[in-house]
Design a binder for these strands. Sequence first.
DNA 1: AGGGGATGGACAAGTAACTTGTCTATATGG
DNA 2: CCATATAGACAAGTTACTTGTCCATCCCCT
Lengths: 155, 155
Amino acid sequence: MIGRMAQSSGAELALLLLGGFHSMVDEVNAELAKRGHAGVRPVHEFALRAVDAGADTASELGRRLSVTKQAAAQTIAALEEFGYVDREPDPSDARRKRVRVTPRGHELMAIGGALFDDVRSRWATRIGPAQLETLEAHLAQLTEHRSFTADDLQD
Amino acid sequence: MIGRMAQSSGAELALLLLGGFHSMVDEVNAELAKRGHAGVRPVHEFALRAVDAGADTASELGRRLSVTKQAAAQTIAALEEFGYVDREPDPSDARRKRVRVTPRGHELMAIGGALFDDVRSRWATRIGPAQLETLEAHLAQLTEHRSFTADDLQD
DNA sequence: AGGGGATGGACAAGTAACTTGTCTATATGG
DNA sequence: CCATATAGACAAGTTACTTGTCCATCCCCT
């Protein structure tokens, strides 16, 4: 997704953002495959981090990632198949199954996180650490008000 | 895709970039639907711009978008069905079918471009026009070297 | 206490945007 | 003039979702 877009700097900006994301993810994924975590898709990495950060049920994970609980359940099933999470009944609520990150899952998070940080620090070298931090701060500001997307999932 | 990621500022940056993209696209798409272009998916918009910018065959479009020619052909088929492009045989090469943006296609580009520009200028107001331009320049710098992704499609 | 709505999860089917693989037709360069 | 590259069509498979439906469990209200 490069190429001259012409006539819309807004559309170009959108492509720049997507391009930046892909740029990072492609690189991290290629390295992960070489290090014994082949078959891991970007979404798995991010979902695993969300689980570890406390989204320990399918419904909650769905809310955090702004997807349906069914989509989240499918992601969890994939993570479980790879051995990155396991599930156990919640003793205090028989409806819930609590998802937990396994040691192998934490290993993936550690490696993946380090790889993402590598890319980020290479970027910091290219444009300067202060500039990168400013860029991140601005992006955070521009996207923070968009939590509404999670709210209109009444599922 | 919001939520605390913890332990990896690199992963957070990736999510910020993706979040920014989605933020723009969701908004533009919602408005487009209200203005007589329902069913248009983000990818259609961007593909249409690439066609207009000169990627007038499926293979060439695939190269520009860094996807296979088959994927590009499917996108073109969808655009044709909606009436945004038409195709005619290339008189100088019987293998090729030249894709052209129709008036309705140009209308979509104009509306979509204006909507993207709206979002962008709202962002400019939020963080300041100079800051936004700096952000764009940095993103361009960080993603420019990634044209290699198109090259390893030997298809 | 018990009934009703909200919530969590499972199962099924459908969709969008890709991919690989295979095939044919046409072009082109040594 | 033939080997190779390229354009496109067709088929099937994959990923990451979606809707829709169903049931079990929880929790609040009267």
